[in-house]
């Protein structure tokens, strides 16, 4: 079971979180024209990298904040966590 450091609450067990997918995906702006290709990429196309990956998790059984987690998808090592408004380098 992963041990995830919520930037608001500290280290908590994975049980308290739910997974939210790739954090690098950016939704096209609302009320702006978007090409079919960009939209399809946003809705459907996801990379499945082996290694470092920045993902979204939500601390559902805690502060309910969505957070960013940089995790190695092969070893599960977590390098860094951050608020969604912060950048992960």
């Amino acid at each position: 079971m992963l041990y995830i450091k919520c930037p608001y609450c500290g280290l908590r067990a994975q049980k308290e979180f739910s997974y939210g997918g790739d954090a690098t995906v950016k939704r096209p702006n609302i009320n702006e024209e978007v090409s079919t290709e960009d939209w399809d990429n946003f809705v459907y196309m996801r990379k499945s990298p082996r290694g470092k990956h920045v993902e979204l998790w939500q601390h559902i059984a805690g502060c309910r904040q969505w957070i960013k987690v940089q995790r190695d998808t092969a070893t599960h090592e977590i390098f860094q966590t951050a608020k969604v408004t912060e950048e992960i380098r």
Binding site: S18, G20, R27, L56, Q58, I60, R64, Q65, W66, V84
Partner: peptide, 10 residues
């Protein structure tokens, strides 16, 4: 969770 996602992230 859906609403929180849009308010916090998007």
């Amino acid at each position: 969770s859906h609403l929180e996602y849009y308010l916090q992230i998007v």
